[in-house]
Design a protein around this nucleic acid. Structure first.
Length: 212
DNA sequence: ATCCCGAGGG
DNA sequence: CCCTCTGGAT
């Protein structure tokens, strides 16, 4: 049976694909380790700023083995401008050590192992598994995705886990990775928290907010 | 002056 | 369940 909501989901998928054909990740990265580091740094910070600090960071710490040897203060200095730098430095060091101890310095390819890494939650894990490895383990639910999904009426849930379940039920698995990127881009540039650009929104025709 | 918003800790 | 951590954007 085709519910009204799932038909809207199909329409949304088409509109998003037109609006964001590239479905790109804005964090610069060359492998799973770099994406994992960049994603941890991206909390409370723009991707553009993360991309300013990562070149020097990866030159100094090219892999988990190098990072695991680092001193907290040097890491803090390199990531200072991204905010939350003490928490992030601690998370990065713990994560690198866990990577070396438990995974031979490689980034694991499954959700269970990922979320056991210090500083890595479901959001970060979904970004890395989906984008670096092409594994659709779930849908990325950061606050952009949560906000857009709520505004579009795709979910009434507040809890990110519940939002993710609602979205996963609405979209085919082979769309999850691209959908995550597109919803993030849309939330970042159009369906913004503060001043949503509804007049130039490509999803306006299916948005309950427009015209109310 | 206020909001942004992920993960851990209390 | 709610608080905290931070610099930057608005």
């Amino acid at each position: 049976m085709e519910t009204a909501l799932s038909q809207r989901a199909k329409k949304l998928q088409a509109l998003l694909a037109e609006a964001y054909p590239e479905a790109r990740c804005e964090l610069d990265h060359r492998n799973a380790y770099e994406l994992l580091v960049a994603t941890i740094l991206s909390a409370q910070c723009t991707d553009a700023r993360v991309n300013q600090v990562t070149p020097a960071f990866f030159a100094r710490f090219p892999d988990a083995h190098a990072l695991a040897q680092a001193g907290q203060e040097e890491v803090e200095e390199l990531i200072k401008s991204t905010g939350f730098y003490r928490n992030k430095a601690k998370a990065l060091l713990g994560m690198a050590k866990a990577l070396v101890e438990r995974h031979g310095g490689e980034v694991p390819r499954d959700m269970e192992a990922m979320v056991k890494l210090p500083g890595v939650g479901r959001k970060t894990a979904n970004v890395v598994l989906g984008t670096a490895y092409g594994l659709a383990t779930g849908i990325v639910v950061d606050t952009h995705v949560a906000r857009v999904s709520q505004r579009l009426g795709l979910t009434t849930a507040q809890d990110p886990e519940k939002i993710e379940q609602d979205l996963m039920a609405l979209f085919p698995k082979n769309q999850w990775v691209a959908l995550s990127h597109r919803l993030i881009l849309h939330g970042r540039y159009v369906c913004k928290a503060r001043k949503p650009a509804c007049s130039s929104c490509r999803l306006a025709e299916i948005c309950p907010r427009v015209g109310v």
